[in-house]
Each structure stands twice: as C-alpha cells, then as structure tokens.
Design a binder for these strands. Structure first.
Lengths: 198, 198
DNA sequence: GCGTGCTTACTAACCAGTCAGTCAAGTGGC
DNA sequence: GCCACTTGACTGACTGGTTAGTAAGCACGC
C-alpha cells in the first residue's frame, strides 16, 4: 500500500474515532472521513479488526516516537519526557484528541489481548524512560536518593490519571503537569528554581 | 418498579458491560444476563439510553457510598478514603470488574454531557474528601504544611491512573496504592511507622 | 491488455424498539 | 364463593434501519 494512502486512512480513522467514539465507530464513518468508499477501505484492509489493529500500532508508534530523547543529561531527558507526554502530537491536532483516542483503546483492552500487550509494552517503555533518567541523575549527583522504579511507576501512573481527567472531565492537563513536575522536584530533591544547563 | 427488579437489571447491565464492553453492549445481552426477554427490558426502560443513564447513576452512587467516613480524626478519614477507593465494592465482585465498568463510562464521557457532568461531580467530591482531611489534619497539627487542594488533586489523579492501569494492563492496584500512600506520608510529613490511634 | 485502485449495488446478520397477546395476581360486585 | 374485569410483568414475533463484508464492473496508467 502507498504510504500516503496509509497515512490518510490512519488520519481518517483517528478523526472518526474522536468524533464518534469506539462504540459508534463504523467503517462507513472512517470511509467518509477518508472521502473514499467503504469498499475501498475493505480493498486495503480485509476486516475492520485488522484496520483497527493497524491503527493502534500507528497511534502507539506516533506516541513513542515523541518519547525518545538522546540528551546525555538525565535532567534534560526527564524534562523532555514530561514535555512529550503532555505536548500535542502535531501542530494541527491538540493533545486532547490524542488522549481521547488512546483512552478509547485502553477501555477496549480487557477484551483484546493484542491491545493489552501493546499497551503493556508502551507502559514499560515509559517507565523505563523515567527510571533510566532518574537512575542516571542519582548516579551523576544531580538528584537526591530515591527508588528509580518507584518514582517512574508513580509518575507514569499520574500521567495516566492526567490523561483520563483530560478526556473524561474535559480538564486542561496543565494543573496535573504542574503537580507531576512538583512531585519530581520533591522526590529527586531538585530545586525548582535551578536552571538545567543547555 | 420493584426494587428487587431494579437491582437485578443493574447487576445484569454491569455483567453485560464487563463481559462485552460498551461497544458491544446490546439490550439483548443485558436481557440475557437478566434471564428475561429484551421486551421486558423495554417495558421497564423506554430506551437503551435511559437504561444506561440509570446504570451510571447506580454505579456512581455505589462508589460514592463507599467514600463516606464520619471519623473526626482526619488521619483515619484519609486512610479510609484510600481503602475505599481500592477495595472491592462487595465481597462477591472484585475491584477490577468495577474499574472496567467505570473506565468504559469515562471513555464515553466526551460524547455525552450527562456522563461528563456526573463524572465531574464525583471527581470534585473525591478531591474535597481528600482536601478536607488534609486541611483538618494540618490544622490539628497531625500533618506538616502542604497545599490541601494540590495534594488532593494529585492523589485523585494518581488514583485515576491506578484504575486505568488496573483495567488496561490487567495489573494489580496494590503497587499503585503503596506509592500513593508513600506520597501522602511524604507530602504530609507523616511517619509511616506511626500508628493512628483508633 | 492488465493489474491497481476504486465505485455502486448488493447481502446476511444484527440492532433498538414495537406490538399483540399471555398469564398470574389482585379487586369489586353480588 | 364465584364471576367479570383490571393491572403489572412478561414473551415471541415482528419492523425499519444499520452493520461488516462481498461482487461485479469501471477508469487509467503502464
């Protein structure tokens, strides 16, 4: 399949999912967003399930690509992670749309091992990103003593919660972000006023 | 309607929702769980939407009833809150089933103002429960200085996250609970070893 | 002329909701 | 005590609309 076509179908699926929700997500609605026929969709994807599985992969890959940060300074890496988790994916779509789609998928996880496995992999990668930065930061003397795995698990749990609130309560994630950053400052013995050297 | 009937329909809806998920929740499946006909369901509830609205009320009321704690000691109240949030609703159903149903509802919130409003009310009550206990605890000299609203928001956000992880990753909430309790000990300057007098 | 990408038109299954009618448990008149 | 009637709870069969997926055919670049 054409890469351009694939991207257009994924974007259409995303829009249709956010507009109608998982329960009312039909191939017709995805096709409408794509501005092609329903049969054209079945030409590229045999079943709706296959299309949605592909979409999940696409969504998670897009999210994970944001988490990568190559900086050697663990303080920069940690800040970049929080930034990535709360920032919109692209300039044109807001972070809420993304969180809505992801929560829809998460709510389906109990009924699909595939979904569950992929979400578990994402979660582990998120926790490892945080734990790694914390570990390196402690080693380098930037942070005070703390259990990297515990800090990582707590931060990732709080991020999960922040995303739920953003979707279910239509709340801006900025408050949650501030609190998570405050927690990190406390737990790692960072002075919030101290600037990290660029 | 008979109270017994109502309770049976609510329980059937809960089972059907947890078994099939919101997307595949049909009146037929609820009727099957109830072991009555689909038409009988429409006899009691005009529309599927009305039934689900009633179910949401039932689910939230059940949850909120657990949050009430009358103790005068804010430390006891705070512990009871964390207990209530993580404990199974009843002896016969586990906390996961409940969290699954609640997450399904939360994922529908963007498409229903009714759902969103009720979830917002629950969230506010949860935050006020924590903030009140923290405020009283600081005043009574049990806790160190902290912003009660910030602590409450962060704790409730983390609880939201813990519930998502329980559902989406099929993870036991015990780790998350331990971390939340640890955060409270830190933020409120509590000694984890100190026993609260009964 | 042949494959790729697509369309219109279709099908079988399934959906929420309706309807006519059943059945048991009252209720009131006599 | 018994009959006529009402009421509440329910069923099975149905309807109109919607769904995922299919079939047959068309345009068009190579």
């Amino acid at each position: 399949m054409n890469e351009e076509t694939r991207e257009a179908v994924m974007a259409a699926t995303h829009r249709a999912l956010c507009t109608h929700g998982f329960a009312d997500l039909t191939t017709q609605r995805i096709a409408d967003e794509w501005e092609k026929s329903k049969a054209a969709l079945h030409y590229h994807y045999d079943t709706k399930e296959e299309l949605l599985r592909t979409f999940l992969d696409h969504l998670l890959a897009k999210f994970e690509s944001r988490l990568a940060c190559e900086s050697a300074d663990p303080r920069v890496r940690l800040d970049a992670f929080v930034d990535a988790v709360f920032a919109p994916v692209e300039a044109d779509d807001d972070s809420r749309e993304f969180a809505v789609a992801l929560l829809e998928i998460k709510a389906q996880a109990p009924y699909s091992e595939t979904y569950r496995d992929r979400l578990a992999a994402l979660d582990e990668r998120m926790r490892e990103t945080v734990a790694g930065a914390v570990r390196d930061g402690i080693e380098a003397g930037h942070f005070g003593d703390a259990d990297p795995d515990d800090v990582a698990r707590f931060v990732v749990t709080a991020i999960n919660g922040a995303h739920v609130r953003e979707v279910a309560l239509d709340e801006s994630p900025s408050e949650a972000r501030r609190l998570i950053e405050g927690y990190l400052d406390d737990a790692l013995g960072r002075d919030p006023a101290t600037e990290v050297p660029a």
